[in-house]
């Protein structure tokens, strides 16, 4: 029973890892928490649903197309909104991201209503392994997330563009002096974040049904995971997400399942009290 919960928690955590990673990437480069992350996830799930159901693309193709779409949407948001507000401080940026969240979420609600939807996939029998039950969907989640994390890790630490991103995150002025174009890096960050969040949307849609609140339901766990990982550390975000996933799942032993988000919130509160820098963060973002 506990082993099954641990397994489910790890998988839930892996699912949260992608948006937490996305949040961390944009936070590192742009220095504000993107509150539109949940809505972008919803948007990704619905755009994959359109490709999958209305245009009859197989789900993997639909997922890639959705990742490209949301990456484009994120870059568009950056071009239309965030790049224009960059000099006004992080408060203005985060209020603007809330505005964008409202727009994206309600585009989905306007177009698709509040009814739940599902992807067109064959229903597969769960696999039994050492007495544990693993769904095909859960297996997909594990594989996709691990591949994404590996790619991001490689991009960040073994490619020129990753080096440039870390440079901008560390010291934008110095990076600019060394010829790193900040706007270009911001666009790369948004594109990556958009793609990751869209994939998370597809995985979330596999895991449960798609509805306009699908992303919103992940919002608090995503932030909890990112803070736990120390806002700005990619591998920290992944570990933080897994810890959050397991904590939420284990909490169902003592609390009603409706209280999962409360658990994430409590994790945030405890972190703010005792260890602001999270598990992996170098320094707290003190004023």
């Amino acid at each position: 029973m506990v082993a099954q919960l641990l397994l489910n928690g790890t998988i839930t955590g892996l699912l949260i890892a992608l948006p937490a990673l996305a949040l961390t990437i944009t936070f590192g480069v742009l220095k504000f928490p993107n509150f539109a992350i949940g809505s972008m996830l919803t948007f990704g799930a619905y755009s994959a649903w359109i490709f999958n159901r209305l245009l009859n693309a197989p789900l993997p193709v639909a997922a890639v197309l959705s990742a490209v779409t949301v990456a484009g949407v994120a870059m568009l948001c950056n071009f239309l909104v965030f790049s224009r507000l960059r000099d006004r401080g992080s408060i203005t940026l985060l209020v603007a991201s809330m505005g964008i969240a409202l727009i994206l979420e309600n585009i989905c609600r306007f177009a698709f209503g509040n009814a739940t939807r599902n992807f067109n996939i064959e229903i597969a029998r769960p696999i039994r392994w050492l007495g544990l039950r693993v769904n095909q969907e859960q297996l997909t989640i594990v594989i996709v997330v691990l591949v994404c994390v590996a790619v991001i890790q490689f991009l960040f630490y073994a490619s020129p563009i990753g080096r440039a991103m870390r440079a901008v995150a560390d010291n934008p002025a110095l990076a600019a002096v060394r010829g790193v174009e900040r706007n270009f890096i911001a666009n790369v960050a948004w594109a990556l974040a958009g793609a990751l969040v869209a994939l998370a949307g597809v995985l979330a849609g596999l895991d449960r049904a798609i509805d306009p609140l699908i992303g919103w339901n992940y919002q608090i766990p995503i932030f909890a995971a990112a803070i736990l990982g120390g806002l700005g550390s990619p591998i920290g975000a992944v570990v933080g997400a897994i810890v959050i996933g397991i904590t939420e799942e284990l909490s169902t032993l003592v609390l009603p399942t409706n209280y999962r988000q409360v658990v994430s919130f409590c994790v945030i509160l405890i972190l703010l009290l005792v260890r602001t820098q999270g598990l992996f963060g170098g320094k707290a973002l003190r004023k």
Binding site: F32, P33, F35, S90, I91, L94, Q219, I220, F223, I227, P256, N258, Y259, Q261, V262, S264, F265, I268, L269, L272, L273, T276, A284, L285, R286, K287
Partner: peptide, 28 residues
């Protein structure tokens, strides 16, 4: 008290969480 000593971002995160938690508690 929990969040203002940190950056603005934390207050935003904590309050958005608070709003959601109140809703969950009221429902349950």
């Amino acid at each position: 008290l929990l969040s203002i000593r940190l950056g603005d971002d934390y207050l935003a995160i904590v309050t958005i969480g608070f709003g959601e938690i109140v809703r969950i508690l009221l429902l349950n």
